[in-house]
Design a protein around this nucleic acid. Structure first.
Length: 264
DNA sequence: TAGGCCATCTGGTCCT
DNA sequence: AGGACCAGATGGCCTA
């Protein structure tokens, strides 16, 4: 049905209003989906169909029975001599039921939007606490997750060993599995030329992980308690945001950061 | 212009 | 029954 909506040029301007998320969708929404919704019945009723019908199947019949209910067996019965399906009888799609169905769908859509926005804001918070936060050049969702994983791993490794890894290894670890643009971004953030630490990552087409001083065959996420006071999302002074490497060191070792390790 | 990323809608499933 | 979660589909935007 959505397919039909989008394929119908006359409906496109309306449909495009969806992109602005808001409760205002109520008004136009119902207008847009009006035709669609009457074909969209309760879930329980749809079970009788033995699968969802395609959009094109809907397209042919929806206009005529605006408030009527279609007979459930729909297309099968049109042929006449087929036995009726078993199971609970599909209730008639009265106008009231159609309205209820619409409202339910709109509410579900609103909830889904909210849920996705919550998810996105959580991702934004994550972007702020991984190295290389930039308001202008946001990491993609997938890259944010990858970098976060690498970052956790790198910090865990530092805690586990209790000593500083060499810088190149640290950056390598951060960039494992990241795309080239993100790798460059991380390198830029750390003020390190990417050519200095990109090794097999670029050379091996298939391999997602390059080798490094950190063994990547296992992920001993062992209670690395990094509840640093620095880690406050939204704080512009968050050292990890801009200093990455040296700041991680600072928070771990309590020092002011070795000059040779601070790149920014 | 192709491809990546994203927002949104939608229907299905599971849980309370 | 209704909400949360999920994955597929779709179209828009942006960039190389």
């Amino acid at each position: 049905m959505l397919t039909r909506l989008f394929s119908d040029p006359s409906l496109l301007p309306e449909v495009q209003k969806y992109s602005g998320w808001a409760e205002d969708s109520e008004g136009e929404d119902s207008k847009i989906k009006e035709e669609d919704q009457d074909a969209q019945d309760d879930m329980e009723a749809s079970e009788l169909r033995g699968g969802s019908r395609t959009h094109s199947e809907h397209a042919g019949e929806e206009d005529e029975d605006d408030e009527v209910e279609e007979d459930d067996d729909g297309e099968e019965d049109t042929e006449g001599d087929r036995p009726k399906k078993r199971g609970p009888k599909k209730r008639k799609m009265t106008q009231a039921r159609i309205e209820r169905s619409k409202v339910r769908r709109q509410k579900a859509n609103a909830r889904e939007r909210t849920r996705m926005h919550d998810l996105n804001s959580a991702l934004d918070n994550l972007r702020k606490v991984v190295p290389c936060y930039s308001k202008t050049q946001k990491l993609s969702k997938i890259e944010t997750l990858r970098l976060a994983k690498n970052y956790i791993w790198a910090l865990s490794e530092i805690l586990r060993s209790g000593k500083r890894p060499d810088l190149v290894s640290y950056v390598q670890t951060l960039c494992k599995g990241l795309s080239q643009p993100t790798t460059n971004l991380v390198a830029g953030c750390l003020q390190l030329n990417s050519r200095n630490f990109l090794t097999e990552q670029q050379c091996q087409e298939g391999g997602r992980y390059a080798s490094s001083s950190f063994s990547m065959h296992s992920y001993p996420y062992q209670c690395a308690r990094l509840s640093s006071p620095h880690c406050q999302p939204g704080s512009n002074s968050h050292p990890l945001r801009t200093h990455g490497y040296c700041s991680a060191y600072d928070s771990l070792y309590g020092g002011s950061g070795s000059p040779e390790l601070c790149f920014l």
